[in-house]
Design a protein around this nucleic acid. Sequence first.
RNA 1: CGGGGAGUGGCGCAGUCUGGUAGCGCACCUGCUUUGGGAGCAGGGGGUCGGAGGUUCGAAUCCUCUCUCCCCGACCA
Length: 455
Amino acid sequence: MAQNALAAGSMRLSRYYLPTLKETPKEAEIASHRLMLRAGMMRQAAAGIYAWLPLGLRVLRKVEAIVRDEQDRAGCQEMLMPTIQPAELWQRSGRYDAYGPEMLRISDRHERELLYGPTNEDMLTDIFANTVRSYRDLPKLLYHIQWKFRDEVRPRFGVMRGREFLMKDCYSFDLDFEGAKRSYDRMFVCYLRTFARMGLKAIPMEAETGPIGGNLSHEFIILADTGETEVFCDRGVLDFDVLGSDIDYGDDDGIAATIGSFTSLYARTEDKHEAAAFESEVPADRRYQGRGIEVGQVFYFGKKYSEPMGAEVAGPDGQPIAVEMGSYGIGVSRLVGAIIEASHDEDGIIWPDPVAPFDVQLINLRAGDDDCDAACDGIYARLREAGLDVLYDDRDERPGVKFADADLVGLPWRLVIGPRGLKAGKVELKRRDKSIEDEVPLDQAVARLIETAGG
RNA sequence: CGGGGAGUGGCGCAGUCUGGUAGCGCACCUGCUUUGGGAGCAGGGGGUCGGAGGUUCGAAUCCUCUCUCCCCGACCA
């Protein structure tokens, strides 16, 4: 929408850099990859590494803004750590040798060993250890949104599994397990809200917890027919209205209760699925089976890094205590692909309103015709004034080309103005998802757009 | 990393087996005609055939080496 002044902006398509493709580049197999290339959102630079073009960047920024907003709302504080890290940090945490060839190792002109960060536990734990001294400074939730690099053996699915990817990672620091659990719960709820705000059904599912044990790790899975993972869950999980329920981050018990209602219901990916448990715990009419994409994970790992890296605070009795930590990731760039997987048809993308690169596609069917130009220019100005982001197709192209591009790019609203309708004083107002297709008087169309699509 | 496949103009492809002056569709440029679902006609521009070496009078085509990309699997946000 238009609230974000930085992201806002309308464009005339004749001036916009939007290189759409009629044919699919042969390297693109899955829908999101295909559509992102065809819709001119990105171009590949190398395997798993992409350049974001203006349209793609708009979406990436919107997704990022929602993630940021919800992090801040949950009490997390944003910072920014570098993409390049000294190897020494990882040698101290013991991960440098453990990480393997997935880590891109580089060296500078002094032959100092560096690496392109695949994650930031080590660095932030180090920063924290050097700056926080007392239990009274806890708890803390710190996050950043930064590009990461993992040298995957086999990058694929476009932006869904690239080597370079934009990720939000948050880290919690608490004095004891109870505190760590509160932080974990807080992030859990934050994630539910974050994905819901993007128009997605994201389901928390039990995940591997590693050597720590317990059940304190969940993957958040977006439902999408083309997802890579098979998921099984109780439909109750799908019906839960997170945005409708008023989350109060000051109310720990309320948050714990919200999570309890989620985690009490069966929800597992194929790795953890047990048919017998599924059938005994979930009534037949509530069993849901489908496919999904992992877009986030929350993880409690206790003192795994704080102990080796000396991240200790003085407790109430003055004795040093290694802090309890957790980390919480969201694949921001991956989400752009995941959203498309979850929302497209054979003609193109169908953007959920909150992440759409523009609100409205205004189509002038006969650019150069005085009446059409006048009507479109007027509407373009009025919609912009109302704060809507409009992509105005004023190109000297045939209608078929414009419709095809509009379907491809997939903006939520489409306003079509042509000589035929104009003679009758009407324009065509449509939703990309086809839920609305109306011929209405021009003023009415504008009013409806401002009312429903406006900030 | 195992198994498969592909590199020829911006995109999609043919040509390679059987060596003989690089082609098609779309896109692009100019003009005219068109104009409610990817227009028609005419004219035009653009390619070291991934790279390096070799064989040959002559290599996109044959041989050797190499780089890159994609798909399936294992792995992963």
